[in-house]
Structures are given as C-alpha cells and as structure tokens.
C-alpha cells in the first residue's frame, strides 16, 4: 500500500489555505468529472483521487491527522487511540466498511491508504450535504448479423458481463443502427441508476443486392431478343424468384421498381421497401455466318 501525496494530487503547497484547496479541487473536478469525461476510465480514476484528496484536506481534523502521520501512516493508530477518549470516531481497522453510513461512495472507491488511515466512513463525495449519485457506465457492444438475419425478426440471447439478455431484433434493422437496453450497463455509483447497454449492429452483405434504407438494388441480365421483342424473365428477389414481364424494345439500363420486394421496414410489420432492378442487356457473341447475315439484313432495314 503506497502513501498518497494529497497535496500533489490537488497541485497545492502544504501550507495551502482552505480557499486554495477548494479552488484547486474545483479546477481538478472540472477537468476529471465523469459527466464531462464519458467512458473515460483514466479520468474516472483521477476524479476519485481528487475527491479523496479533497475529502482529507478540506476536513481540518483529517488534514491534521494526515499532516502529522501521513508519511508514517502505520503509526496513526497511536494517534487514534490518544484521541479516542475525546469522543473521536473510531475507525474500523480490518474492516474498511465499518461505520459506513450508506451515503457516498462504497469503501472500494477509496484507496487502501485512505481506508487504512481514516476507515471507510468518510461519507463519500459530498457537496453541501448532498451525496452525488452517478449513473453507471454505459456498455457498448457490437453484434454482427448477416443480411439474411436482418431480413427476419429474430430472437437472440446475449451474454454481457455474465448476465444473459434476451433480445428481439426486429426485421429491417440497419447496418450501424444502435439499440439501447435500459439499465443493463454498469451498476450506478452511490445509489445512482444503472447504465444502459448500447448494441450496435454490423450487417454483412454478401448478396447481389445492395441495400439503401428499405430499398434493394440489383441488376438482371436480359438477352437481346427478350429486350427487343419483350417476354418473360425469372428475376431474383431477396425473398425468392419472381416472374416479370419485359416490355418490347427495353433499353439497356432500364430500371424497374418491384413494389414491396425490398427489405422489411424496421418495426413496421408487413411493410417492405421496393426492389429496383436494372436491366443489363447481353448481346450474343460468337455469331454464326447465318446470324451475322440476318443482322446485316436488319441493319439495312433501319
């Protein structure tokens, strides 16, 4: 267990006045306060150190004890015994939590040095009688899904910090979308509410369909004759094949919109986006002499 120099934590001299301590504490608190440093473990640790330093140095009795025995804290017991007859609060040696009033930080939030010197009954970080409650830290997780998984509503069990969380992922969830599960983050500090769990979805698409919002885009090859004369085409959609009528004289790059054949709309059961197909006309290759002749005849007609 190491000695902690509370004066250097606050960046003040040993003879600092009460006003100096308050000022230095405020300055450090503004820098490291958890509300202005979200999800920053280093700042959180530093904030605890700053609070502990303030708790000791802003309390004349604690400061006196610290100044006298700080570096030689193991002998502080003698000081305590000497003062016990004067009605001074006894510290819970060997049981840092003893005498803990239920307000302020839990014993674990103080350094071992503090616990050993002052016990766990410090009362926590308090301002004018108010104990500060903090919401627990939010957890962030990422869940990978295939685009096929995202196409249908599915139930999944996630294990976060040993706790099983049942999740219903509605069809149509988007890549990068984050859902919040209230109260499943870290426990609150000092009686504050639990943090939340944020799950971000990464949706992998290895299909021929490009997804943009609820619409899907893909291309369909069309042979020259069907594009010229019209006909039928068996086209792929996300949910299976559909038969399409192709109009005569269809141009390359023509887009057709298949209503309701796109991706499910998130949390709107039965609603789907559209599928936009782009026709890509494939000209015949390796023409026979006869085919070539017929094309030449066609050419003469134009």
């Amino acid at each position: 267990m190491a000695f902690i120099d509370y004066y250097s934590v606050l960046g003040i001299a040993k003879n600092a006045s009460e006003a100096d301590i308050k000022k230095a504490y405020r300055k450090q608190a503004r820098k490291y306060h958890p509300d202005v440093n979200p999800d920053d473990k280093t700042a959180e640790h530093k904030f605890k150190e700053v609070n502990e330093a303030n708790e000791v140095l802003s309390d004349p009795e604690k400061r006196k004890k610290y100044d006298k025995y700080g570096k030689d804290w193991k002998h502080a017991d003698q000081f305590e015994q000497a003062g016990a007859s004067g009605g001074r609060r006894q510290r819970g040696q060997g049981n840092p939590g003893a005498g803990f009033g239920g307000e302020g930080y839990g014993g674990a939030d103080y350094s071992d040095f503090f616990e050993s010197m002052f016990g766990g009954s410090g009362g926590g970080f308090r301002q004018g009688g108010r104990s500060t409650k903090f919401k627990g830290q939010d957890f962030n997780a990422e869940l990978q899904l295939s685009i096929h998984d995202a196409y249908q509503t599915r139930k999944q069990v996630l294990t976060v910090n040993g706790e099983n969380i049942r999740l219903t992922i509605a069809a149509g969830i988007a890549d990068g979308q984050t859902i919040k599960i209230k109260g499943k983050g870290a426990p609150g500090i000092n009686g504050g509410p639990n943090g939340d769990l944020y799950i971000k979805f990464a949706i992998k698409n290895d299909t021929k369909f490009q997804r943009e919002g609820d619409n899907l885009y893909s291309s369909e090859d069309l042979d020259l004759y069907t594009s010229m004369l019209g006909g039928e085409l068996l086209a792929d959609t996300f949910g299976g094949k559909v038969k399409l009528k192709v109009a005569p004289e269809t141009q390359n790059g023509t887009k057709v919109r298949l209503k309701g054949k796109g991706f499910p709309v998130y949390k709107k059961e039965g609603e789907f986006g559209d599928l936009i197909l782009t026709y890509s006309i494939k000209n015949p290759t390796n023409l026979t002499a006869e085919e070539k002749k017929l094309f030449e005849e066609l050419q003469k007609l134009r």
Partner: peptide
C-alpha cells in the same frame, strides 16, 4: 440530472 451535477459539483 447530469445538468444538475455539472451545475452543483462544478
């Protein structure tokens, strides 16, 4: 709550 803490603590 966050605004109150920032106001009162800082």
């Amino acid at each position: 709550e966050k605004m109150i803490r920032i106001h009162q603590d800082l």
